[in-house]
Lab assay of single mutants.
Amino acid sequence: SSQSQGISSSSTSTMPNSSQSSHSSSGTLSSLETVSTQELYSIPEDQEPEDQEPEEPTPAPWARLWALQDGFANLECVNDNYWFGRDKSCEYCFDEPLLKRTDKYRTYSKKHFRIFREVGPKNSYIAYIEDHSGNGTFVNTELVGKGKRRPLNNNSEIALSLSRNKVFVFFDLTVDDQSVYPKALRDEYIMSKTLGSGACGEVKLAFERKTCKKVAIKIISKRKFAIGSAREADPALNVETEIEILKKLNHPCIIKIKNFFDAEDYYIVLELMEGGELFDKVVGNKRLKEATCKLYFYQMLLAVQYLHENGIIHRDLKPENVLLSSQEEDCLIKITDFGHSKILGETSLMRTLCGTPTYLAPEVLVSVGTAGYNRAVDCWSLGVILFICLSGYPPFSEHRTQVSLKDQITSGKYNFIPEVWAEVSEKALDLVKKLLVVDPKARFTTEEALRHPWLQDEDMKRKFQDLLSEENESTALPQVLAQPSTSRKRPREGEAEGAETTKRPAVCAAVL
């Protein structure tokens, strides 16, 4: 046999249950609850290399294929790409003598399909299967379609040439079993990697079954959420508030809700932002270029202005709740996480202390139980975000031990490091100062900020419009641009040419 590394010779191994799959997660993409704000000051410096380099560890398999027929071997997927077919160049070659004697062998292509993985959001991997055969590759009886790919989820059954000719079961060793999710959700989405997690739940990458488009699904544990919100009269209202707010909003710089499922837990389906959180971008770069800050901040102002015009105060604006559309420097941003939002009543007064301390406005800290506050709290938070983006460190921090965090904020005395700000323009610093004003009545509004000289930049605004146009074009394009080929190089076993392929839609398939 010419099988590559990772293939075992026996096809009769006992199949494990899916609970053996491991679970991976990374930083929070968007969480309903406010958790302790991640610290920006503690960015690790590059460490000196050791005298002796450690040995390379043996790579762990990321997936496993269990053979369902004699003549096929099990495969431990270690590499990122595997070709399957009769050709000797394939990493998994159909060359077992037992297999060659079967009637089905002649229906398999020289290069029938490939399984591979690509880097997705949060640097996690996504597994795909890609059909290159004349007679078809099927996943859970659905045709992939020649020249098309679809994501592979845990426990997928792979069939060759005929939908009933099941050859492998695919085990993704990095994700959960699909069966743990409600059927209504599974009918519409293929669940994938964990993108982030918080005290009350997690955010998962998923794929729409009909279109193969990526989405983010925010899962909120009702049990954990009820415990964490025990002081509230009705904890469920917080989730329902977020859903109702998101459904009503329609702005290019605000995250869109696509679906909602109320089962044992809450499942909020949101558009996916491939670039992750602004927080991670700031930490990764230490600070952002001023031109990049301007492009992002302009969009934040437009989003918050839209919220305020619609009578909504976000109340928890922070870099973790600003998501980026891509890994590119120039990209769209979207505001997310409306769990603490407040729809303005007639009095415009709110007395609930919520939000993240580092970003809270002075009037929030001094008015607990005594007075109210209004939309100006969001403008203060925007000032803190702009400060961080321009400088790479927070204006107020618990680690300045000589003054408490509350006193720093209520006095408006931010930590100004001259040598850092020497590289920032006077106009940018002036806008920061106009937003970090203790008196909410004297603080800049979103309208005033948008009129500030720093943002009178036609090149930046043109760039934003171009990015918007690109997004609109990409969302308007159909996901499947061509029909699967019906040509046949070899006959199917026991049926006429093209008899099955043309009847089945290529579900969740995307043209390369």
Score class of each variant (00 low, 15 high):
Val269Lys: 01
Ala422Gly: 03
Lys434Met: 12
Val432Gly: 14
Ser341Cys: 01
Gly355Ile: 05
Glu328Thr: 07
Gln299Ala: 08
Ala482His: 02
Val420Phe: 03
Arg315Gly: 04
Tyr267Gln: 07
Val403Leu: 05
Val480Ile: 13
Thr370Met: 13
Gly311Leu: 09
Leu382Pro: 02
Ser325Tyr: 14
Val282Gly: 03
Pro362Ile: 00
Trp380Cys: 02
Lys434Pro: 00
Lys248Leu: 07
Phe464Ile: 10
Met300His: 02
Leu477Ala: 11
Asn374Gln: 08
Leu332Arg: 06
Val269Asn: 13
Asp459Tyr: 12
Ile255Trp: 03
Met273Thr: 10
Asn250His: 14
Leu382Ile: 04
Thr356Asn: 00
Ser411Leu: 04
Met350Asp: 01
Gln327Tyr: 11
Leu301Ile: 06
Leu353Glu: 04
Cys508Phe: 08
Ile268Asn: 14
Arg462Trp: 12
Glu447Ala: 07
Asp280Ala: 14
Ser367Ala: 13
Asn310Thr: 10
Ala496Val: 08
Asn250Tyr: 14
Lys434Gln: 03
Lys318Pro: 00
Tyr373Gln: 02
Asp262Leu: 13
Glu346Thr: 00
Val364Met: 13
Leu278Glu: 01
Pro319Val: 13
Ser348Gly: 15
Ile255Thr: 05
Lys503Met: 11
Tyr298Lys: 10
Asn250Gly: 10
Tyr306Thr: 10
Ser411Cys: 12
Gly355Asp: 00
Asp337Trp: 00
Phe297Thr: 12
His399Phe: 06
His314Cys: 00
Pro418Phe: 03
Glu473Gly: 00
Cys379Gln: 02
Glu264Thr: 11
Val322His: 01
Ser326Thr: 13
Gln299Cys: 06
Pro395Gly: 00
Cys354Arg: 02
Ile254Met: 05
Gly369Lys: 13
Asn259Lys: 08
Asn285His: 14
Gln305Pro: 01
His314Ala: 02
Thr370Asp: 09
Leu302Glu: 01
Lys289Glu: 14
Glu471Gln: 14
Tyr298Phe: 09
Val269Tyr: 02
Ile335Trp: 01
Ala509Val: 10
Tyr296Leu: 11
Ile388Pro: 15
Leu344Ala: 05
Lys318Ser: 02
Asp337Pro: 06
Ile257Cys: 06
Glu346Cys: 15
Val283Ile: 06
Ile335Ala: 14
Glu290Gly: 08
Leu302Gly: 01
Val377Gln: 02
Leu382Cys: 13
Met300Ser: 08
Ser341Glu: 00
Leu468Ile: 06
Val377His: 01
Asp466Trp: 12
Ala506Glu: 04
Lys503Cys: 12
Glu328Ala: 12
Val480Phe: 12
Phe260Glu: 12
Leu288Ser: 06
Leu429Pro: 07
Leu382Ser: 09
Ala361His: 06
Leu365His: 11
Pro418Ala: 05
Ser381Asn: 15
Lys334Cys: 11
Ile335Arg: 02
Glu264Arg: 05
Asp439Gly: 02
Lys463Thr: 14
Cys354His: 03
Leu468Pro: 05
Glu271Asp: 14
Ala361Val: 04
Arg504Trp: 12
Phe444Tyr: 13
Glu274Ile: 09
Ala291Tyr: 02
Thr358Met: 05
Glu290Ala: 10
Asn321Gln: 03
Gly345Tyr: 04
Ser485Asn: 04
Lys463Pro: 09
Leu450Gly: 13
Leu344Ile: 11
Trp421Glu: 00
Glu320Tyr: 05
Asn374Cys: 11
Val322Ile: 08
Ser485Phe: 08
Leu360Val: 12
Glu271Phe: 09
Asp262Arg: 10
Leu512Ala: 09
Cys293Met: 07
Trp380Phe: 02
Leu317Lys: 00
Arg315Ser: 01
Pro440Asn: 09
Leu270His: 01
Ala449Asp: 04
Glu329Ser: 09
Ile312Gln: 00
Leu360Met: 06
Leu307Pro: 03
Phe464Arg: 02
Val403Ala: 12
Ile245Val: 15
Val282Phe: 09
Lys248Glu: 07
His308Tyr: 13
